[in-house]
């Protein structure tokens, strides 16, 4: 009996692990095929010269990386990416927070506004891009019509290197507001009402309550939204492809679009892989930094 018991225990533990793995297998399979394998394949390819099909031909070591750091177009796409991130992320969060604060008020018919503000979440990037393409259209678009009406000269929104990145960023802000708004509204609604009632009795005004109660209590949600938005901004592709195709003069050639062009238009799979690896490392580093620096100021309940 005393001998049989441990053996039985080992067997149960093994069969527990086996059935656990069985439950996990669909998820492991999907994760492995579509995430883990491509990741390692990309890292592998970034060290090889390939043919147009992406078949590795010869090992070149860090040559692709070395080339990138001296390539003007790579630095240009980094500049475009950073500019795009700085234009979209803060603006999206600030506007969405403002809308969420408005929509969190208890007013008659507020449900209509909540639906409207979150509506862009239900729109595909392609459809939204087409809408903005029309609005930016130099001759029939509403922006130039407006400029015309106030007597200003018209602007080539998507064709002028000075405005293209800004225009694409504005469209992106609009597209991302719905999701960010919804998450922030959810966060606001989770804040205990009695905290505000107590503050009302204490006599503090709206702005004090916003600064001293709402923002700290919302900080976990803001942190989450910040990270998600940042990662999203680094990975933007659809609206660039539809609105500007990286142009004019590479001013909107953000890194993901540059990777796409290198791999599928220029057939430089090795170079594209190297860029992808660098993007991955950059996002990893930024997210890690965010956790290190910002999370200390986040208040979790």
């Amino acid at each position: 009996m005393t001998v049989a018991l441990p053996r039985q225990r080992v067997r149960t533990r093994l069969s527990d692990a086996a059935s656990g793995l069985l439950y996990l297998s669909p998820s492991i399979a999907l994760f492995g095929i579509f995430l883990v394998y491509p990741l390692f394949r990309t890292i592998y390819l970034s060290f090889f010269q390939t043919d147009t099909q992406g078949t590795p031909l010869s090992y070149v070591g860090g040559e692709h990386y070395a080339k990138l750091f001296t390539s003007a177009s790579f630095w240009q796409s980094i500049q475009a990416t950073v500019g795009f991130v700085l234009l979209t992320v803060p603006l999206t969060i600030i506007i969405a927070l403002g809308l969420a604060l408005l929509a969190n008020e208890k007013l008659r018919g507020i449900g209509i506004f909540r639906t409207a503000f979150s509506a862009t979440m239900g729109m595909s990037v392609a459809a939204s891009s087409v809408i903005w393409m029309f609005m930016y259209n130099p001759s029939i678009g509403i922006f130039n019509r407006f400029l015309e009406a106030v007597g200003a000269s018209e602007v080539q929104w998507l064709l002028d290197p000075q405005y293209a990145l800004l225009s694409v960023s504005l469209a992106t802000v609009w597209m991302n507001i719905g999701f960010t708004f919804l998450i922030l509204l959810g966060g606001l609604q989770n804040i205990d009402r009695t905290l505000y009632e107590s503050a009302d009795i204490a006599g503090t005004n709206y702005w004090t309550q916003l600064r001293a109660i709402t923002i700290p209590m919302l900080s976990p949600t803001l942190f989450f939204v910040g990270i998600i938005s940042l990662i999203n901004a680094f990975q933007t592709f659809g609206q660039i492809d539809l609105l500007t195709k990286g142009g004019p003069t590479n001013s909107t050639n953000v890194i993901v679009y540059a990777i796409y062009k290198d791999a599928f238009i220029n057939y430089n799979v090795g170079g594209a892989s190297a860029q992808a690896v660098l993007l991955f490392l950059a996002v990893l580093l930024l997210t890690w930094l965010q956790f290190k620096l910002v999370e200390r100021k986040v208040h979790y309940q």
């Binding site: 205990d192 009695t194 905290l195 009632e197 009795i201 001293a212 700290p216 209590m217 208040h299 309940q301």
Partner: peptide, 13 residues
């Protein structure tokens, strides 16, 4: 007036 709430309504942060 002052008020004490059932859940105390303390500011957790």
């Amino acid at each position: 007036l002052s008020m004490v709430f059932q859940n105390y309504a303390l500011y957790p942060h």
